[in-house]
Amino acid sequence: MVKKVYNSEQIEIGDDYMKVSKEEILHIANLSDLILEENEVEKYLSNLQEILNFANIVSNAPVEGLDITIGSNEAQNVFRKDEIKIFEDNKSLLQNAPTQDQNMFKIPKVL
């Protein structure tokens, strides 16, 4: 476990055993439909690696036997009645469309 100093505080940073490869970051960028230019990849990669190393702290947390918590809300069974409500201002739903035709959003052909 490597210790690094940030803001004069010693933060434990994991060693690079969860190393991110260039292929991986390009794959992730592809999954999230983002382009990383050649000159950007290195920077994003090192940022990501550093943050992941820090995030890796969670692997040392004393969480054996603990359930996951999804939201900080203990609510359950929040339902809505099956009653129609028309959204009146239909035109406004397409007012921000980059291009539209016959009240539909226009996009390049999808095979």
Partner: peptide, 13 residues
């Protein structure tokens, strides 16, 4: 599991 699930457990902690 390594990140997200762990983080949700840390939340409980």
């Amino acid at each position: 599991d390594a990140y997200y699930k762990k983080a949700q457990q840390v939340r409980t902690l």
